[in-house]
Design a protein around this nucleic acid. Structure first.
Length: 841
DNA sequence: GCAAGGTC
């Protein structure tokens, strides 16, 4: 039998379809719990393709190292490393099928991890079939062209490359686990609250902490802006601004403002007309996709999840790729043609008018996967509304990469207000999109036209209004998730498949919270400690060095064992230093821990208010002046308490956020406001003779209120963001125009600008949203038709089996199951379980 | 209860 092993199930299925000369038989192995694809290929009458699920084995320390307190963290450096099975089902299947194989082709992804995954599979097969022959297939896209070429040019397995991958595994485990334990033990944070350290997560955390420090060190500077509304002879008005946007001296600003006289005259000093061209965007890779999704208001996590669903449904290409260059084997024209007759018909038709398609391209090539692109046309009704947004984004981006430049006419008009000594230089910029080009296909974040009345040099204008704005410079903004992922990509830390997970990890370790991301004081303390004693692991250099070593290993210039020995020696030296300074490190980590607990100052005695634990284990906010002062405030019973940087204006105390894994964060808000609310409710209840509401019930009500408020705030943010985007675009409609609302028809005020820069797409999607929500209302039957677990949307076969194994076999089992326990047992995310529960409740 | 890397 001829066995072909791929990295994932979908690749197995598609490769089988391409290679098979006759029909492909899908073969189920109920005992093994897997499926394979069988057919005849060349001289191999029985050819079997089976898919793995990425790595099916991993590495770890032996069991005896499991106890954190019993072992010195340092012992992990030279501890034995064992191979563990991470996917039992597939490992068993590999052995069963491998036994019958006389030839094996490793057809995993064409990259380092792919080679390692392939060698892992091969070793498992060899353990039951030592003399089996094997070779390797290399392909960059699963197209007939690429696959047939790969199987007609089979090559050898690159063991050096796999060794390189293996060295990464070992170094990551040894450094990560030992430092994680050391830091956690030092800080006294054990169990669920341990503090983690790693080659990728720590430099990422350092980026966030550094930015926060910059914000704290930022000293705002006052500046002024001046606007003058001007009117042409034809009574068309527009808003102009002082030629230097920011004026940093008050006296200068006052002088200019004084010189601008309402009712006075101005003159057009110069009119400069230009043309500006915007290149179409490059194809999406994973990073660029996340960035674009974030920019249209889809969070990285949601983008990732929805893309995965669309990929599994066969609508979109493989989600994890670095490539921004379409490979030659991709049949671009037919990918566009498939949209003829769909709702993208007119776009496809327009593109197909081109005799040759010349797509844009970025700089990165990924030998394993092509850039993100649509692979099948979807109908709106086929997929969920949110998923459609993602699908549409991908399709539109794909189209845009074949489209022409967008062309803008721009105008820069300089204006003299007054003449002679009192002359002041003002200016106004105008812009008009002359030729939409790619922006027709990809209308996201499109800057609005800013139209100006016709003017020529020497024209006389009159001043109808003036305004002086006092402002201050703003600290650098915190990183949003999309931006952070792009930075990680630029710095070469993490991979396309892991960057989003790394950020989630920082969140679940309580190092960061919110979006944009804000670090806790604990994060400061950890980063500071690591920077001081083990700077290697907080910098991207460690990854760079590792990459270099791995290249040498795969080139055969150096042995894996030598790299590992050197790495272990380095780590051992670091531990010498750490242990020497043990007490100081413990102190600084613990003070970080304490700082996270300070909420504000006590209203009674001005000491610090601190989050504390009662003897019974419940939390509360107490005064550090206790026992002299016994001021206290209650807190919710469960969830991690996070002190935010938002202050309650009334009580000068930090607002609190409660984070529970797998749930949305709860904006608890001001603890004093919450307590007051409760007392008010209690009083009222007493007056009416009702049962007295408990504090936790009151807190629940507060939670609902907070949710509403949060939503309001988010809407506000979104609007602000839209305005910001149009402001930052080169020839944008400045949102500033808002302040001078009294303008005439030719001037778009910021209000309309903001509204319209949410743009037609946004309006369209709201319209769609309304439409589809009414249509879903009309068939509530589909909701109640969830009788079995398999009816639940988003619950696939794999999860189903995991649930079955955990004895959750019916919808009711799911309803009554404890989310967190079930998550632990099955390995399914609590979030998903919660989602399914909601869908059946 | 440790890492990062695959995949679902």
């Amino acid at each position: 039998m001829y066995l072909i092993v791929t990295e994932k199930e979908t690749a197995a299925k598609r490769i089988a379809a391409i290679l098979a000369e006759n029909k492909v038989k899908k073969v189920r192995y109920p005992k093994l719990g897997i499926e394979t694809y069988e057919f005849s290929y060349k001289k191999h009458e029985r050819t079997v393709v089976m898919g793995l699920s990425g790595h099916v084995v991993g590495i770890d320390f032996p069991k005896e190292y499991n106890n954190w307190q019993k072992n010195e963290a340092r012992d992990l450096i030279d501890a034995n490393i064992i191979v563990t099975t991470t996917n039992k089902k597939i490992v068993t299947a590999l052995k069963v099928l491998g036994k019958d194989a006389d030839l094996v082709t490793i057809a995993t992804d064409y990259d380092r991890e792919g080679e390692l995954i392939g060698v892992e599979a091969l070793s498992l097969i060899q353990s039951v079939n030592p003399n089996v022959k094997y070779n390797r297939a290399l392909y960059s896209a699963i197209t007939p062209k690429d696959i047939t070429h790969a199987f007609e040019n089979l090559t050898t397995v690159n063991f050096n490359l796999a060794d390189a991958g293996h060295s990464r595994e070992v170094i990551d485990l040894v450094w990560g686990a030992s430092l994680t334990r050391y830091i956690s033990l030092c800080a006294g944070r054990l169990g669920k609250l341990f503090l983690s350290v790693g080659r990728v997560q720590s430099p990422t955390l350092a980026l966030i902490v550094e930015r926060e420090k910059e914000r704290e060190a930022f000293v705002p500077v006052d500046y002024w802006e001046i606007e003058a509304t001007l009117e042409t002879q034809k009574k068309e008005s527009f808003v102009s601004e002082y030629h230097m946007n920011r004026i940093f001296e008050k006296e200068v600003a006052d002088r200019i403002f004084k010189n601008v006289i309402v009712g006075g005259k101005a003159k057009v000093a110069s009119v400069e007309a230009k043309e500006r061209k915007e290149h179409p965007p490059i194809p999406f890779n994973t990073t660029e996709f996340y960035v674009a999704a974030s920019a249209v208001g889809i969070s990285v996590n949601n983008a990732k999840r929805m893309y995965q669903t669309l990929y599994e449904a066969g609508y979109l290409s493989y989600p994890r790729t670095d490539s921004t260059i379409y490979p030659e084997s991709l049949e671009l024209r037919s990918l566009i043609e498939m949209f003829l007759g769909t709702e993208f018909d007119s776009y496809a038709k327009e593109l197909l008018k081109q005799k040759t398609l010349t797509p844009t391209q970025g700089k990165k090539e990924d030998p394993a996967h092509p850039p993100i692109h649509p692979v099948a046309p979807a109908k709106r009704s086929d997929i969920k509304e949110d998923e459609w947004k993602v699908y549409e984004l991908v399709v539109r981006r794909f189209f845009a990469t074949f489209a022409g430049e967008a062309e803008w006419d721009t105008l820069r008009i300089e204006i003299d207000i007054n003449e002679g000594e009192n002359k002041e230089d003002f200016k106004v910029n105008g812009s008009r999109l002359k030729n939409e080009g790619w922006r027709w296909y990809y209308p996201y974040n499109k800057p609005e036209d800013r139209l100006l009345p016709p003017m020529a040099e020497g024209d006389v204008l009159s001043v109808t209004h003036k305004e002086l704005f006092e402002k201050e410079t703003q600290p650098p903004s915190r990183y949003g998730q999309g931006r952070l992922i792009r930075m990680m990509d630029d710095m070469g830390i993490g991979t396309k498949a892991t960057r989003a997970d790394i950020i989630n990890k920082l969140v679940s370790r309580y190092y960061v919270h919110g979006n944009p991301l804000q670090p806790t004081k604990m994060a400061y303390a950890v980063v500071d400690t690591l920077e001081r004693y083990t700077p290697t692991i907080v910098k991207p250099d460690m990854t760079r060095q590792l990459e270099e070593d791995m290249d040498k290993i795969s080139d055969g210039k150096i042995k894996e064992s030598d790299v590992l020995a050197e790495s272990r020696e380095m780590l051992d030296n670091i531990f010498k230093d750490l242990e020497k300074n043990h007490e100081e490190i413990a102190k600084s980590l613990q003070s970080g821990l304490l700082e996270d607990k300070i909420v504000g100052r006590c209203q009674l005695c001005d000491s610090d208010l601190i989050i504390r634990k009662s003897k019974k284990g419940s939390r509360f906010i107490g005064c550090s002046g206790y026992p002299e002062c016994s001021y206290s405030l209650p807190l919710p019973r469960t969830g991690q308490v996070v002190v935010t940087d938002k202050m309650c204006d009334e009580h000068k105390i930090a607002k609190i956020k409660i984070i529970t894994e797998g749930k949305r964060p709860w904006e608890f808000g001001c603890p004093v406001c919450n307590l007051n609310d409760w007392e008010r409710q209690k009083e009222e209840a007493e007056k009416n003779g009702q049962t007295i509401i408990s504090y936790s019930e009151a807190a629940k009500k507060a939670k609902e209120r907070a949710k509403k408020e949060e939503k309001k705030e988010k809407d506000k943010e979104r609007k602000a963001k839209a305005a910001e985007i149009s402001e930052t675009a080169d020839v944008a409609v400045a949102a500033k125009a808002t302040k001078s609302v009294r303008t005439a028809k030719t001037v778009k005020t910021a209000k309309t600008a903001a509204k319209s820069s949410l743009s037609k797409t946004a309006q369209k999607t709201t319209a769609k949203a309304e439409k589809s929500s009414s249509s879903s209302k009309s068939k509530p039957a589909s909701e109640s038709s969830v009788r079995e677990l398999s009816d639940i949307k988003g619950l696939g076969d794999v999860s189903l089996q995991k649930l079955n194994e955990a004895k959750v076999k019916t919808v009711n089992d799911l309803k009554v199951a404890d989310t967190e326990k079930l998550a632990k047992k099955t390995g399914i995310s609590a979030k998903n379980i919660e989602k399914w529960k909601e869908s059946v409740s």
